[in-house]
């Protein structure tokens, strides 16, 4: 159970390990985009861990990174085609950041650090924990940016119409600022718990 839970908070991929920054910052201009990116990462991470954990004995040690990358690239191609077919608007909004999941260091990192050394069940739990942790991080970041940037969350209006949106929140600069403050808030909570 610990294997699953550590990804949600203690070793949170975004706020604690600072992995996978590129999709984290790029697609979280709305909560919906963040959520879809998170789901895509959960899918790829889950099945990549599953495959790597099953064939870990067959892969020659020297080329293992290349093998992992090809497995991940294949899974990402599936996700990309799926999004294009069923959620064309999401596919357009995420654009090249869907294929960029391939080089998301969380996935390669979990395959290398965990799935290649553990049996199937722990690997799956680990992947699921990390994926869900990543997903809620993206959703939180996306919600904050959407809330301040346009006054909505998931399209529902939260702030009254007289609210003057902070456009900078949707722009790249806002992503860095919000993430910086979120990480420091995380540090603050963690430091207080230690005391």
């Amino acid at each position: 159970m610990y294997v699953f839970l550590k990804g949600l908070w203690k070793e949170h991929p975004i706020f604690r390990q600072l992995l996978g920054m590129c999709p984290t910052l790029a697609v979280t201009n709305t909560a919906r985009n963040g959520l879809f990116m998170g789901l895509a990462v959960i899918f790829v991470l889950f099945f990549a861990s599953c495959i790597v954990s099953l064939i870990k004995k067959i892969i020659p040690h020297e080329v293992r990174i290349a093998v992992y990358t090809v497995i991940i690239a294949t899974l990402v191609t599936i996700v990309d085609i799926f999004f294009k077919a069923f959620f064309p608007d999401v596919s357009r909004a995420l654009g090249p950041y869907v294929p960029l999941i391939i080089v998301n260091c969380i996935i390669l990192g979990r395959c290398e650090a965990f799935a290649s050394k553990n049996r199937l069940l722990p690997s799956l739990l680990d992947a699921l924990g990390m994926g869900v942790g990543f997903c809620w991080g993206l959703f939180l970041l996306g919600s904050i940016r959407e809330l301040f940037g346009s006054g909505n969350i998931l399209g529902f209006t939260i702030f009254p119409a007289c609210y003057n949106p902070l456009v900078v929140m949707i722009l790249p600069a806002g992503a860095f600022l919000v993430l910086g403050f979120l990480v420091s808030a995380m540090n603050c909570i963690e430091n207080r718990r230690k005391r």
Binding site: A173, A175, F176, L179, G180, F181, V183, S184
Partner: peptide, 8 residues
């Protein structure tokens, strides 16, 4: 955090 804010 301070690195991210600087980047922002």
């Amino acid at each position: 955090p301070i690195t991210l804010i600087t980047a922002g």
